[in-house]
Nucleic acid binder design. Structure first.
Lengths: 155, 155
DNA sequence: TATGAAAGGTTGGCCGC
DNA sequence: GCGGCCAACCTTTCATA
């Protein structure tokens, strides 16, 4: 494995990450104008941030409430005592309705963020989670509304 | 306000959203090659998806565990009976450590996703949430690990 | 929607600090 | 090592059909 060693993320890198967080489709020139660097210099820094894994990728922020999976929910999972944390984290594998799995310290063991078509769909997904073996219990909560914040790095 | 009416998101739009979800920096030509359209045709569709608000924006996926806020937590909030849901949703305003606020049906009233520097920082942020007035109680859980899934739209 | 041409963005090489 | 500059190439964007 590559020694992707010291990732010396300096204040300019932080400013670049900040810009990409706000608009991942900004051009190198636009980012450069914001951080005081030329476009090629910005490209080289971004290439390095991608190589070292600081930048994992780029994604569109989509309004799912107006698409085919308008319903959001969180399901708390409790596992049997023999389940390892890595096994718990893997429970979302292959279930497209699972947006994210957070393994937790304490109770519950995991928090699963779901996006589903309707309540019937939710029932199906929860049953699938429950049937994964090692799941001792679940508690599902419906989301009324979600507000996400653009993860500013600056403060 | 503009009546950005019927948003007829067809299967090609869905394929475009799918591509942008996986790589928001893909060129129109690359997306066109994937969905079977010319670059200008892809641009017009994306412009419309942005105008109608189906696409809210584009963001970089950053590995925060290797930056300045490596610790994640969820805080459940319980509010006093006179709090309206919109007021509850606004509790994250102006707190940069708040990644998202989910208002919930049932108990708790809200789930707040936090990203902080360390436990001391977590304490400060939770105290700030508690001091927002109308908060009747909190329960904070630490995240051991998070796995997010690339939100595939297709299946 | 496609085409084609002008404008603008990306990217690699080279030089200087 | 890191940034600026330049030039070739690719992409975007707009007119037009």
């Amino acid at each position: 494995m590559k020694r992707s060693d010291e990732a010396p993320v300096d204040s300019i890198d932080r400013a670049i990450l900040d810009r990409l967080t706000v608009d991942a489709r900004a051009t190198f020139g636009q980012i450069g104008a914001a951080v005081g660097l030329s476009a090629p210099a910005v490209k080289r820094r971004i290439d390095k941030l991608e190589e070292t894994g600081i930048i994992r990728g780029y994604t569109a922020v989509v309004d799912h409430s107006r698409l085919d999976r308008p319903l959001e929910a969180f399901t708390e999972l409790r596992f049997t005592g023999d389940a390892r944390v890595d096994e718990i984290a893997a429970i979302g594998e292959g279930i497209p309705e699972v947006e994210a799995v957070f393994t937790m310290a304490g109770d519950p063991d995991a928090l699963v963020w779901l996006r589903v078509r309707d309540v019937r769909d939710l029932k199906r997904v929860v049953d699938r989670l429950r049937g994964s073996g090692q799941v001792a219990g679940t508690k599902t909560m419906m989301v009324l509304g979600a507000t996400t914040f653009p993860s500013t790095l600056s403060p």
